[in-house]
Design a protein around this nucleic acid. Structure first.
Length: 719
DNA sequence: AGCACGCCGACT
DNA sequence: GTCGGCGTGCTC
């Protein structure tokens, strides 16, 4: 009897694959292919895994090897490219293969029952698009049908040509050049699309996508395949946040009305997520629009990847497998020999350095695309000279008033949610420290609660000081809720809307908030970085930045890069549609105590090039990324000593010539939710040397018996 | 990670 | 007399 051993990747922290025995259930049944999903017994339970190899014999005793329970044959096996992608990510980020593969699949597909999978497949199958009917008939082994015998509605010439695109605006010369460079690439091509907000990057993505889809359709036709038959090409577009998908999805659907466009992000219901993922996996979806998790989706005909706002920190996953979707996108494009477009007005220094060194081609859009739209005027307000009341300087108040009089919208940007960052007692000096973390508990006035933003602890706002009984407790500082309150007092007639993580907690509420801004039902918008990204508010002509200074003196060397990007991005919300009613362009006012700081000066000049150049010089001299590669070993335990002891041992367990192992240090936010944390930074000028070291190092660390919990992050962003 | 087994304190 | 604490050990 035929008997084969399958190597199967399972979602477990163990750094190995598992051998299982496969026996045909019925005569002639073929062995599951590499890439098939299977169900296997694992310990006391059952688990879904991915077949990653076939071997003749196992090193394990025959008595230990269990049998495969079921094979998900209704789902096509995952491709060799997808397996290679997961293999690369597992190696690079030093995680087990199964921990990369399985969490990347929708829950419904890795469930122990097939109900949801079959339902999703059925839903996809009966979508009555002509191309699918034909493909289905072919798969079922049907005889080719003579077109003349088909009813008129099914005559091929009567079918809509999927490559008919909606009307496209004409491009300026720089945009056209970019489209040609992207669509003309016939091999791996990393392209930095560098253009200010409003310069028409989206239009470049759409027209490049159209050109690539069209060319693939033409090639298919030349091969004798009708345009409706099968998917000629797939395009993956990533955006940083779920909030940005509806607007872009609308644009894409309007432009490509006959194409299958699907979204992939964590906001989808499980059923829809499974359907969309399968549509991508089966090659039915032409365009996949998603957040970072979509980079791990299966796309058999992938021909172009677009990473919009490539500098955005959200592309880095911050828990579990800590991958960079941008870096994996570049790897995927390289592997497939296709173009990858990294779009940004303020590229990450990593990407900028690649472009400077000529490894990435730079495509530049210098002008705003909309007629009359020019870059907003950015001014700095010196808070030492114009003292703020309720956080607002008289200059900013006057500017908002002017917009109100003209019926235009203002946006106030404050990257601090809640009412006040801390509650304090004047009498005894008590402050609202979190009892579980080294952090302040933030005053949330509407909910009448103190909330710790680091752990989930929530308390009622005390009526009196817990230490001395004083009833006059003072909120110190200002968050978005308090500014909202102040705005109501200053502009009682204005319609004020606050948008932050708290006001948009309910599903769909963020979208309806943005919609009401678009409909002009809001005069003054106050929000955190949620409002800084992507949204194109036609009537918005003023942006006020309330208190960005804290980031200037952060110990995180990336803070100024991030602040600059954030300010440029929020500034880009102003005046996108054109001139203000009084003929002026959009206006940006930044309140600061350091009006002469080079960062603000660079923002007022819209001078990314210059500022990036200075930052890169600093990084080069300080041996920071992108001139150095890093990995961070984190440890946590009930007692700091346990975490430190583990890190000290780790620091001495393996020597390597090119590797710098720094001193273990307790973390700034030492105590979070009753655990103490410390970390150890490892650096190396060579990425391969660092990779080789990490592999060997972690094998040793796993053998260590320690009471500390630990994890490694490759290419950490928050140190 | 789950999920067992394995020995010592406060409850029906 | 049991329920349950989390220590440590295993998963093909």
């Amino acid at each position: 009897m035929e008997q084969r051993i399958l190597q199967i990747a399972l979602d477990t922290p163990l750094h190995t694959v598992f051998d299982y025995c496969w026996r045909p259930q019925e005569e002639g049944e073929e062995i599951p292919a590499i890439g098939h999903l299977v169900v296997v017994p694992f310990g006391r339970r059952e688990a879904v895994g991915v077949v990653v190899g076939h071997v003749q014999a196992s090193e394990l005793g025959a008595d230990k090897i269990k049998n495969v329970i079921a094979v998900r044959r209704q789902m096509a096996p995952l491709s060799a490219h997808w397996l290679a992608l997961c293999g690369f990510a597992a190696d690079y980020y030093q995680r087990p293969l199964g921990e990369v593969m399985l969490p990347g699949l929708p829950k419904n597909l890795r469930a122990l029952t097939t109900v949801a999978l079959d339902k999703a497949l059925k839903a996809l199958d009966k979508t009555p698009a002509p191309k699918k009917r034909k493909a289905k008939a072919r798969a079922a082994g049907a005889e080719p049908v003579d077109p003349a015998e088909l009813p008129a509605a099914e005559q091929p010439q009567a079918l809509p040509d999927p490559m008919q695109f909606g009307p496209a605006p004409s491009l300026n010369a720089a945009q056209q050049e970019a489209v040609d460079a992207i669509a003309g690439a016939d091999a791996f091509a990393p392209l930095l699309l560098y253009g200010v907000t409003g310069s028409g990057k989206t239009e470049v993505y759409l027209q490049a996508a159209a050109a690539i889809l069209q060319r693939a359709a033409d090639a298919a036709q030349a091969d004798g395949r009708p345009p409706q038959d099968g998917p000629p090409a797939q395009i993956l577009v990533l955006v940083p946040e779920i909030n940005l998908t509806p607007q872009l999805e609308g644009n894409i659907r309007a432009r490509f009305p006959h194409l299958n466009v699907v979204a992939l992000h964590s906001g989808l219901a499980e059923g829809e997520r499974a359907r969309n993922w399968l549509a991508a996996h089966l090659g039915q979806a032409h365009i996949v629009l998603g957040t970072r998790l979509a980079i791990l989706s299966s796309l058999p005909h992938l021909k172009l990847i677009v990473i919009d706002e490539e500098h955005d920190p959200s592309y880095k996953q911050q828990e579990g497998l800590r991958y960079s979707a941008r870096d994996l996108a570049v790897w995927r494009a390289h592997q497939l020999g296709i173009p990858v477009v990294l779009g940004s007005a303020t590229p990450s220094l990593e990407t900028w350095q690649h472009a400077q060194a000529g490894r990435y081609r730079r495509l530049e859009l210098r002008q705003r695309a909309a007629q009359q739209a020019v870059l907003p005027k950015v001014k700095v307000i010196d808070m030492e000279r114009d003292k703020p009341v309720d956080g607002l300087t008289s200059t900013l108040i006057a500017a908002v008033r002017k917009r109100l009089e003209h019926g235009e919208q203002s946006l106030l940007f404050l990257n601090r949610r809640g009412y006040a960052p801390v509650l304090a007692c004047d009498a005894c000096g008590w402050i609202s420290n979190c009892m579980r973390c080294d952090a302040f508990m933030v005053v949330h006035r509407p909910e009448r609660r103190l909330r710790c933003h680091h752990c989930s602890l929530e308390l009622h706002i005390p009526k009196s000081c817990p230490t001395c009984g004083n009833v006059d407790l003072q909120p110190l500082g200002r968050g978005t809720q308090r500014v909202e309150e102040g705005l109501h007092a200053i502009f009682p007639e204005a319609r004020v809307l606050r948008i932050d993580a708290d006001s948009t907690r309910l599903k769909g509420s963020a979208q309806s908030a943005f919609d009401s801004v678009h409909r002009g039902e809001v005069d003054i918008l106050i929000g955190t970085q949620m409002v800084a990204k992507g949204h194109d508010f036609k009537k918005l002509t003023l942006v006020g930045v309330m208190n960005p200074d804290t980031a200037l003196f952060s110990h995180d060397y990336r803070a100024s890069e991030r602040l600059f990007a954030q300010l440029m991005q929020v500034a880009g919300r102003a005046g996108r549609a054109g001139l203000s009613a009084d003929g002026s362009s959009g206006e940006v006012l930044i309140q600061t105590r350091y009006p002469h700081h080079p960062l603000y000066q660079a923002v007022t000049r819209h001078d990314y090039d210059g500022f990036a150049g200075e930052l890169l010089d600093e990084r080069r001299q300080a041996y920071f990324p992108p001139f150095m590669y890093q990995a961070l070993l984190r440890a946590e335990a009930r007692e700091l000593e346990q975490a430190m002891a583990f890190l000290k041992e780790a620091a001495n367990i393996l020597d390597a010539p090119a590797i710098t192992i720094n001193e273990p240090i307790p973390m700034t936010m030492m105590r979070v939710a009753n655990t103490e944390r410390a970390q150890l930074l490892v650096e190396c000028a060579s990425r391969p040397a660092l990779q080789a070291f990490l592999k060997e190092w972690l094998a040793l660390l796993r053998q260590l018996r320690t009471r500390a919990r630990w994890s490694l992050e490759v290419d950490p962003v928050d140190i």
